[in-house]
Amino acid sequence: MSLVTLKEVLQPALKQGHAVAGLVTLGWEDMRAYVAAAEAENCPVILQAGPSCRAHTPLPILGTMFRHLAEEASVPVVAHLDHGYTIEECKQAIECGFTSVMFDGSRKVLEQNIAETAAIAAMAHAANVSCEGEIGFVGYAGGESSAGTDPEDAARFARETGVDAMAISVGNVHLQTDRAGGLDEARIRAIEAVTDIPLVIHGGSGVPLEQRTRLARQSKICKFNIGTELRLAFGTALREAVNGDPDCFDRVQILKQTHDPVMEAAREALHALKSA
């Protein structure tokens, strides 16, 4: 069984100079391809169930799927709740077998974010589950704007919440469909200077591959969340499968054709974060 906690993969990453990919799942086809990619790259992988995934598939089902894949995998697999917005959601994920929960209080005032994140971290740790928190709001392409992380706020957040990983806002944006963006490395260095906690980048698809690799090896960023570029790979493969044979109506046969393209896209994301 290769089911592990977030802390178990991020602490070695911090010490050894690499990062782990948090791959955003939407269904069985992509999560299975992600584990196959991790096995091909011989590296850990974090399977993430975000809000849109949870709206489509109930948490108990997702927990069972993640755990089944982990038990069959030859590499470490983390079952991670991404963007949990309430203590009830995080509690349910823990009860459903997730080994890591991310509480997103980034829209709240600092004191409230710290208090609620600390309570969820304590609950998670009591169940031997890891907890990720977020300080500084990460915006969305074409939507809400980001609010950059203040280094002093980050130091206080890390110190007072007891989280195992801290997501920060340093120029990253969710749902970006190209890699034209870039991270504010000066802000990253300022945050690193005041905390030793593993750092997390949400919206990793918008970060150029070269910068991901360099920061994975030369900074305290130990986790990059990757979703949009994998959704694009899945959507492209699905379109080609449907349009390639108008007489094929079997969804299993159609969805099978997404496996290899999604696995290859996931391999690229995983490979970029490995140590030198």
Results as ranks from 00 to 15, higher is better:
A38F: 14
N42E: 15
G235T: 06
P261K: 07
G84R: 05
V75Y: 14
M65L: 14
M123W: 05
E111Y: 01
K108T: 00
C131F: 09
T161K: 07
I188F: 03
S275G: 08
S130E: 12
P208L: 02
E41S: 12
Q211W: 02
D184A: 10
A165G: 04
S106K: 10
L175I: 03
C53G: 00
V194N: 12
Q176S: 13
G203C: 04
A237W: 10
L273P: 05
T57W: 06
C248P: 03
N113Y: 09
T195D: 11
V207L: 00
R67C: 09
F137Q: 15
H18S: 09
A180R: 11
M263H: 07
P44Y: 11
I87F: 08
S52Q: 13
D250T: 14
A154K: 07
A266V: 06
A158N: 08
A165H: 02
A237Y: 10
D184Q: 08
S169V: 01
N225F: 01
K91G: 09
L47C: 05
A233Q: 10
V35E: 13
R212N: 02
I114G: 08
E29T: 09
E39L: 15
K223R: 05
A193L: 07
G22M: 09
E88P: 03
V129W: 13
K256I: 03
M65H: 02
V207E: 00
G133D: 15
V109E: 15
D247S: 15
G162D: 03
N172R: 01
A233P: 08
A237I: 09
V35P: 13
E89P: 04
A158L: 07
M123P: 03
E160Q: 14
A55K: 15
T57P: 01
T161C: 10
L230H: 09
V138P: 13
A141D: 13
T117R: 09
E192A: 06
E132R: 07
I135L: 14
L209G: 00
I197E: 10
V262A: 09
V129H: 13
I46L: 05
V4H: 01
G97E: 01
M123D: 03
Q253V: 13
S145I: 11
P246Q: 10
A38Y: 15
M166E: 02
A126R: 11
E72Y: 12
I254M: 08
G84F: 07
V129G: 12
V45K: 11
S106Q: 04
